[in-house]
Simulated scan of single mutants.
Amino acid sequence: MGKEVSGQIILLLITIFGIYVLFGLYTSLLSKMTLRSLEKRIAKGKIDDKQLIRLYETTERNKGNHFVSFFVYGIFYKSHIRMQEEINQLYRNEMEKRNLL
């Protein structure tokens, strides 16, 4: 009976680790897709100056909010913070390009 229980615990730990890895890959993929989509929208001119300023100010204001990142992404909050920083930098670069800063 002891071997059966320890085998189940090991199987549970492997399952939890697998879910952990899959969610990590999901958040990474989501981050890349979001950034690529924003780059395309900006390149096509679908974001005007007023929207760009508003989006930049929103990301700038929420840039250091670790509580929301942890609440949404749990232990993967650092990937959310990294994604927000990349998006903020994308908006900042576009604003500098358009001479809005």
Rank of each mutant, 00 (worst) to 15 (best):
M1N: 04
G2N: 07
G2H: 03
E4R: 09
V5M: 03
V5F: 03
S6D: 06
S6W: 06
G7Y: 03
Q8S: 08
I9N: 00
I10C: 06
I10H: 08
L11I: 08
L11Y: 06
L11A: 15
L12Y: 09
L12N: 07
L12R: 11
L13A: 12
I14E: 14
T15C: 10
T15V: 10
F17S: 14
F17E: 11
G18D: 09
G18R: 05
Y20R: 13
V21G: 05
L22C: 09
L22T: 04
F23H: 11
F23C: 12
G24S: 13
G24M: 06
L25Q: 11
L25V: 14
T27Q: 12
S28T: 11
L29Q: 13
L29K: 12
K32M: 11
T34A: 11
T34D: 14
L35C: 04
R36V: 14
R36T: 15
S37V: 04
S37M: 14
L38C: 14
E39D: 06
E39I: 02
I42K: 01
I42S: 01
A43R: 08
A43N: 01
K44Q: 07
K44D: 01
K44S: 06
K44I: 03
D49R: 01
Q51S: 15
L55P: 02
L55M: 14
L55T: 10
Y56T: 02
Y56D: 02
T58Y: 10
T59H: 11
E60V: 13
E60A: 15
E60N: 15
N62M: 09
N62F: 11
N62I: 09
N62Y: 08
G64W: 08
N65R: 03
N65P: 04
N65Y: 03
H66C: 09
H66Q: 12
H66P: 05
F67A: 12
F67R: 06
F67E: 13
V68R: 05
F70K: 00
F71H: 04
F71M: 13
V72T: 07
V72H: 08
Y73T: 07
Y73E: 07
G74C: 00
G74I: 04
S79N: 10
H80N: 14
H80Y: 08
I81C: 02
I81F: 06
R82H: 07
M83F: 05
Q84C: 10
E85S: 11
E86C: 06
I87W: 01
N88P: 01
N88S: 08
N88T: 09
N88V: 02
Q89D: 03
L90G: 01
L90T: 05
L90P: 00
Y91R: 00
R92H: 12
R92P: 02
N93D: 15
E94W: 02
M95A: 00
E96F: 08
K97P: 03
R98W: 03
N99C: 04
N99E: 06
N99V: 07
L100A: 01
L100R: 00
L100D: 00
